[in-house]
Simulated scan of single mutants.
Amino acid sequence: MFQPHNLLQAFDRVTDYWSPKVIGRVNDQLLKVAKLKGHLVWHAHDDEDELFYVVKGQMRIELEQQIIHLGEGDFFTVPRGIRHNPVAEEECWIMLIEPASTKHTGDEITPQTRSLDEQLS
């Protein structure tokens, strides 16, 4: 049976900052929700673009040559191969849309890095 899903209620599954949860799939793209606070790590995804959509709060995406500021309702796609660092001074809720092959922090491994299995749980 087909059912709609509520984006805001999906954030109930997110209990830790920087720990995305997969909430849906469109072809080979995963829809993920995450709560952010602080910063993640400078990283890149060599083969995948990554879309950040701010549902609640505000954040910035630091690029090597520019800083992108996002507020509620804004979205930005980080092109493949571009080093970036997401930052949120206060709690921010985002939805990510990215290929299933996208590694959470690219080739950078930190205590915040989450595997796809962890994101699916």
Rank of each mutant, 00 (worst) to 15 (best):
L70V: 08
W42H: 10
P20R: 01
Q66H: 15
K56V: 13
P86D: 06
D74M: 14
Y17T: 08
F75V: 02
I23T: 00
G71H: 13
L63T: 11
R60K: 15
V41S: 12
S101I: 00
M95E: 06
E62F: 10
V55T: 13
V26P: 02
P20A: 07
V54P: 08
G38T: 07
Q58L: 07
P79A: 04
R60Y: 08
T15Q: 11
L31M: 14
E64M: 14
E48S: 11
S101Y: 01
S19Y: 03
D12C: 06
R13M: 12
L30R: 06
K32N: 04
H104C: 03
N85L: 13
P99I: 00
V14D: 08
G38N: 08
Q58M: 14
E90T: 13
W18F: 05
W18I: 02
P79W: 01
H104E: 01
E50Y: 07
V22W: 04
I94H: 02
Q29T: 14
W93A: 06
I97W: 01
Q66M: 12
K32F: 03
V78Q: 04
D74P: 10
A44V: 02
Y17I: 11
Q58G: 15
V54W: 06
G57C: 13
I23Y: 01
I97Y: 01
R80E: 09
D16V: 03
P99D: 03
V78H: 01
H43G: 10
V22Q: 06
L70G: 05
N85A: 01
K21E: 04
W18A: 03
D49H: 07
L40G: 07
I82C: 10
H104I: 00
F76A: 07
H104S: 08
A100P: 01
G73D: 01
Q58P: 04
L51S: 10
Q29Y: 12
P20G: 02
E90Y: 10
Y17W: 11
I94C: 05
K21R: 12
V78Y: 01
V33R: 00
E62Y: 12
D16R: 13
Q65R: 12
H45M: 07
P79M: 03
V78W: 02
E90H: 14
V54C: 07
D28K: 11
D46N: 10
D28G: 09
A100R: 12
H84Y: 09
H43Y: 09
F52C: 04
G24F: 05
W18T: 06
V33I: 13
M59D: 07
D47N: 14
E72N: 09
G73F: 02
W18M: 06
L31E: 05
V22N: 00
R13A: 12
Q66A: 14
K103C: 01
A88W: 08
I94F: 05
H84E: 05
D28E: 15
L70E: 08
V14P: 10
D47C: 07
Q58R: 15
H45V: 03
R13V: 05
I61N: 08
F76Q: 04
E50N: 03
K37L: 12
P86H: 06
H39K: 15
E48G: 03
L96Q: 00
L30Q: 06
A100S: 14
D12M: 10
I97V: 15
E108V: 12
G24L: 04
W93N: 07
